[in-house]
């Protein structure tokens, strides 16, 4: 346990550095050092600092948020199947982005797409809080999330349906697949503060999540203020996951799988899984983002496609091994 976090941090950092080193243009180590020192070929510097560095940072930031979001929600909803998308916030964020793409707002200002996504995520809080205000049951929240993602999904379908030409539809689908390609520091500026707020809100919930493993009455009798916990959980997910989805599109499975991989290496309490899940999520997503660049395909492979493709068999194997515990 004590070694887990330092090891994960080291690997996450390595994956970040590797992400800067890998790409279609081969850049040797001396050229990289020169670029960091502010010397050398300006094109090489531009590739490293303006293209690869923001992409590496986004991989770490988005992955951390998805991992921590999954761990926090699994603890909060006491459901091993929970993941950041379960509350419908990822879907409303995606809908926000799709609206921006549909109305071609991105053509004027590219940062309007992620901004609309964040707005979509935060707007989801209104129905979620209203629906869950009457009771503290986890099931109410899950049902509200299902309703919300269905509604947002319908909105996205509508946009695809009404898309004036195949290219517009293509642009929307492409965004929905999830990717970190061609991101800039503008995206980092949108995602990083959102994720920082989200992580701060979620990582502080460890104590309440532990208490919740005794059920709602058990948690409250241990002095947990469930109202506050719910508010901080929902706000943390909406702001953090909203910010992450805003720049990456929908990347499935990382938030579901990471807590399950981390849990057996801890004492299995929700609080112990939180922080390692954030770091492991950063590591996993960055590694996957390196992999999509290395796999030779005719069209560039989308990150969200890869995480789901590789994630499912891995996850099933893991669940079969751990099933005695459920």
């Amino acid at each position: 346990m004590s070694l887990l976090l330092p090891l994960l941090l080291m690997f996450a950092l390595l994956s970040g550095l590797l992400s800067i080193a890998v790409g279609p243009a081969h850049i040797g180590l001396p050229a990289m050092v020169a670029a960091i020192e502010g010397k050398g070929d300006p094109i090489v510097r531009a590739i490293l600092l303006d293209l690869r560095l923001p992409r590496a940072i986004l991989g770490l930031v988005v992955g951390a948020m998805l991992g921590a979001g999954g761990a926090a929600l699994q603890g909060y909803l006491r459901n091993p199947l929970a993941e950041p998308a379960i509350l419908g916030i990822s879907s409303t964020a995606a809908l926000g982005a799709v609206i921006a793409i549909y109305f071609k707002l991105a053509d004027t200002y590219s940062w309007l797409v992620p901004l609309f996504a964040v707005i979509g995520a935060v707007l989801a809080l209104i129905p979620l809080l209203a629906l869950s205000a009457r009771g503290e049951s986890a099931l109410t929240l899950i049902l509200a999330g299902v309703a919300l993602s269905t509604l947002a999904g319908a909105g996205i379908s509508l946009a695809l349906n009404l898309a004036p030409n195949p290219f517009a539809a293509m642009e929307i689908t492409s965004w929905l697949l999830g990717s970190l390609e061609d991101r800039s520091f503008k995206d980092v500026l949108i995602a990083a503060p959102c994720v920082a707020i989200g992580l701060a809100l979620l990582l502080g919930q460890g104590r309440a999540l532990d208490a919740l493993s005794l059920g709602e009455d058990g948690a409250r009798s241990l002095g947990t203020d469930l109202r506050r916990t719910r508010l901080q959980m929902l706000a943390g997910i909406a702001i953090g996951v909203g910010g992450a989805v805003a720049v990456s599109g929908a990347i499935g499975f990382v938030g579901l799988i990471v807590p399950h991989l981390v849990r057996p290496l801890t004492d299995r309490s929700p609080s112990a899984v939180l922080l390692p899940s954030a770091v492991a999520g950063a590591l996993l997503l960055t590694t996957a983002d390196i992999a999509v660049r290395l796999v030779p395909t005719a069209m560039p492979l989308k990150l969200g496609v890869l995480t789901a493709l590789v994630g499912v068999p891995f996850f099933v194997r893991h669940l079969l091994r751990e099933r005695r515990l459920w």
Partner: peptide, 19 residues
């Protein structure tokens, strides 16, 4: 007696110290 995560007995009893 709801228990939602496969905690060790010692860890579970330790939850009583949360307050």
């Amino acid at each position: 007696q709801e228990i939602h995560w496969p905690l060790s007995v010692e860890r579970l009893v330790g939850l009583g110290r949360l307050p």
